[in-house]
Design a binder for these strands. Structure first.
Lengths: 232, 232
DNA sequence: GTCTATAACCTGATAGAC
DNA sequence: GTCTATCAGGTTATAGAC
C-alpha cells in the first residue's frame, strides 16, 4: 500500500536515451515524414538500440506525438503570453491588427531559430498531419485560435466573423509555406534577416485582413484547421 | 531496318488499364502521399493486376510523375492563356493587380472542381514534393512564374522585385493551404460558393501585394518555389 | 533499462507462363 | 498485355536473456 522508498522515477532520470531519441525523431520525421522515417533510422541516429526505442515510448505513433507536442505546447503558450502582455500595455483599448498578427507569428520564428528541425516538422503537421495527430493538434490549438479570433474581432468590429475566419486561414497558409521555406535556410542568414521577413509577413497578412469588405458578404461556414484530411 | 508494318503502338491504344491506373494513383497518392500508397493498393483500386501496374509505367516513381503532370501541365497552360487574354483586352495598359492574381489562381479552382482528387495531390506536391518530383515541378513552373512576375512588376513599378518575389510566395501559401482545405469539401457546396471564395482570396492576396513598402527595403535573396527540401 | 533475435507483415520489382 | 509466383529488403512490435 505504501509507496516504495526507492520509487523508481517512471519516466525521468534517463534523460540521455529518451531525449536523444526525441531529437532524432524531430530531425528525421521533419525531413522524411511519418512514413518516411522508420524506427531503425531513428534508433541509429540517436545511437540507441531498436528495442530500447519502442520501450521508451511504446509505439511509433506515441513517439511521433510526443516529439511534436514537446515544442508545440511551449510555442502556443508563448503566443498567448505575448498577446496578454500587449493587451495589458494597451489598457483596454483594442490592439492594432498588425500587433495581434505579430503576436501570432513571432513565436514561430523564434522557435524556428532555436529548433530548425522542429520548424520543418511543424509546417508538415499543420499542413497535413498523419491521422492520429489530427485530433491532438486541434485540441491543442483550439483555445489559442479562440483568443486570437476574439482579439481580431475587437480590432475589426465591422467584419463578419466567418469572413475573418476565412481570412485568418489565408494568413496561416502564407505563414506555413514560408515557415517551411525558412527551415531550409536557417543558419545561412543573419538575425536581422529574420526580423525583416517577420515584419514583412506581418504587413502582408495585416493588409489582407484589413482589405475592403466584399459587396455582399456570404455567410461562410467555418473551415477546420488543420484541414480535415481523410488520412495520412 | 524498316519499321514493322504492324508497329504496335508503344503506349496508347490501351486507354482503359493505363488510365484507370492513373485515376487510382491520383486519388490514393493524394490521400496517402507517395509513401503512404503502395502499388498493391493502387492496382486493387484500379482493378488491375499488380504485375500489369509496373508494366505500364516501369516504376512507382514514373507513375507518380505522370499522374502529377497529366493535369499540372494543362492547369499551367490555362493560367498563361487567361493572362494573355486579359493583356490583349487591356491593349498595352498595365493590368490591375487583382486581375493578374485572378488569372493566377482561377485555374486552380477550376481544376479543383473538375478533379477534386488532383487538387489534393497538387497541394501536397507544391508544398512538399518527394525529391524526385522536385526538379520536374520547378522546370514546369519556371516559365509560368517569370511571366506573372513580369506582369506584376509592370503593375507595381515602385516595388523592388525581390520584395515582390517574397510577397508572391506568401500569396502562394495562402492559396495552397486553402486549396488543400477546399479539396476536402468539393461537391458539398454550390458553385457560387467557390466563386465567392475565389474573389475573397483575390482580395486578400492583392491587398497583401499592394501593402505599403517597408521603410528600408532589404535586398531579399530569391526563395525557390517549391522550397528546397532535403528529402521526401 | 538495454539488448538480441525473431515474428508477422508489407514494400517495389521481376522472371516466366499464358 | 496480363497474370502468378517469388525475391530481397524493408516495416513495427514483442518475447526473453542479461
Amino acid at each position: 500500500m505504501f509507496p516504495m522508498e526507492k520509487s523508481a522515477p517512471k519516466v525521468p532520470s534517463d534523460r540521455t536515451t529518451r531525449d536523444r531519441l526525441l531529437d532524432a525523431a524531430e530531425h528525421l520525421f521533419g525531413i522524411h515524414g511519418y512514413k518516411g522515417a522508420g524506427m531503425r533510422m531513428l534508433a541509429e541516429e540517436a545511437g540507441v538500440n531498436l528495442g530500447a526505442a519502442t520501450y521508451h515510448f511504446g509505439s511509433k505513433d506515441a513517439l511521433y506525438i510526443e516529439t511534436f507536442l514537446r515544442r508545440f505546447r511551449v510555442m502556443n503558450a508563448e503566443r498567448l503570453r505575448l498577446l496578454r502582455e500587449s493587451e495589458e500595455q494597451a489598457e483596454g483599448k483594442p490592439l492594432p491588427v498588425a500587433r495581434i498578427v505579430d503576436c501570432m507569428i513571432r513565436p514561430l520564428f523564434q522557435s524556428g531559430l532555436k529548433h530548425p528541425s522542429f520548424q520543418l516538422l511543424l509546417a508538415r503537421n499543420l499542413f497535413m498531419p498523419p491521422p492520429f495527430l489530427h485530433a491532438v493538434i486541434r485540441q491543442e490549438l483550439e483555445p489559442n485560435i479562440k483568443v486570437f479570433q476574439a482579439a481580431l474581432l475587437r480590432a475589426l468590429p465591422a467584419m463578419p466573423d466567418s469572413l475573418l475566419h476565412l481570412r485568418t486561414m489565408f494568413g496561416m497558409g502564407a505563414l506555413l509555406v514560408f515557415s517551411f521555406q525558412m527551415a531550409q535556410m536557417v543558419f545561412e542568414r543573419h538575425a536581422t534577416f529574420y526580423e525583416n521577413v517577420l515584419e514583412e509577413m506581418v504587413r502582408f497578412i495585416s493588409a489582407g485582413l484589413q482589405s475592403e469588405l466584399p459587396p455582399s458578404p456570404e455567410q461562410w461556414l467555418p473551415f477546420p484547421f488543420p484541414p480535415d484530411s481523410e488520412s495520412r
